[in-house]
Amino acid sequence: MVETADRLFYAEGLRAVGVERIVAEASVTRVTFYRHFASKDELIHEYLSGRANRARDRIEAAAESEPGNSRAVLDAIAQTLVEDGAILGFRGCEFVNAAAEYPDVAHPARAVAAGQRAWLVDLAAEALAALGHPRPRRFAEALLMLRTGAAVAADLDHSDDAGEVFLESWHAFVDASIPDIGEGARSSRGTHAS
C-alpha cells in the first residue's frame, strides 16, 4: 500500500490522489487501509518519511565511502539530486512539491519537508565547518537554495545536461567559497558528473 502511494503521490501529487485510488490500485480494502493509517495525512507522512530516510541513507553511504572527507559529504548532497533527476518520470523534489501543496506549516507534509531540509543544511554546515568555511551555516543554506533551484529547473526544463550544469555550479560555488581548501579536498568531478 505504501509502495502504491509512493508511486502515485510522486507522479500525480499528494492532493490529486485520494484514498479510493490508493485502495483500488493496491488491491486492499478501505478497512485494511484504515487499519494501518488513521487518515490520508498519516499515509502522506509515511510516504515522505520513507523518501527522506532513503535519501539520508544514500547520502550517508556516499559520505562514509570516504571517511573524514568533508568534501565528499558536500558532493554526496549534490550527487543524489543528479541521480534522482536522471530517473524517468522525475517531477522535481518531493519535499518541495509537498510544501507547495500544503502551505500550512502544521501539516505533516510540511513537517517532514522542513525536517529533511534542516537535516541537509545541518549536514552541509558541519562539512563546511570542517573545511574551515568562515560562515558554514549561512553558506549551507545558500547551497540548499542552489539545490532546490536545480530540482525545480530539472522538472520544468527537461534539459539533457541539467545535472551537469548543476554539478558544475555547485562545485564552483564551493571551490570559490573556500579558496584555500587545497586540491586534495576539492571534488573529484570526473567521478561524480553525469
Rank of each mutant, 00 (worst) to 15 (best):
G184A: 15
A172C: 04
A151N: 03
A99K: 13
G50C: 04
V96S: 10
D161A: 07
S169Q: 10
N53L: 12
E46F: 06
S177Q: 07
A150Q: 04
D160Q: 07
F139L: 12
Y102Q: 14
L48W: 04
S188C: 02
A61E: 09
R51D: 07
S169G: 12
E141K: 09
A124M: 05
A55C: 02
I77H: 03
V121M: 05
A124S: 15
V73Y: 08
L143M: 09
V174G: 09
G182Y: 12
S39F: 01
E12A: 14
G92Y: 11
D84A: 14
A154E: 05
V73C: 01
L128W: 01
A114G: 03
A142C: 03
N69V: 09
P103S: 12
A52D: 10
R137D: 06
E42G: 06
G149K: 06
G184P: 02
A130G: 07
E126F: 01
L14G: 15
L14Y: 14
F95P: 04
A111K: 15
R147V: 00
K40Q: 10
S39K: 06
A55D: 09
V2F: 02
E20P: 14
G18K: 11
V73F: 05
N53E: 15
A113R: 11
V105N: 08
A55Q: 10
S39A: 12
T29H: 05
S159C: 04
A185F: 00
T191Q: 10
R110L: 01
L128N: 06
D180G: 08
A76R: 07
A38P: 03
A24F: 09
S70G: 08
Q79G: 01
E101T: 11
L123N: 01
R58K: 11
G92K: 02
I59R: 10
D41A: 15
Y102T: 14
A150L: 02
L128K: 04
V73R: 11
Y102I: 13
R110I: 02
H45K: 13
F166S: 06
A62E: 10
A52K: 12
M1R: 09
D160I: 04
A113D: 08
P67F: 08
C93E: 03
F173Q: 04
H133R: 03
L128C: 04
H36G: 06
A11R: 10
R54G: 06
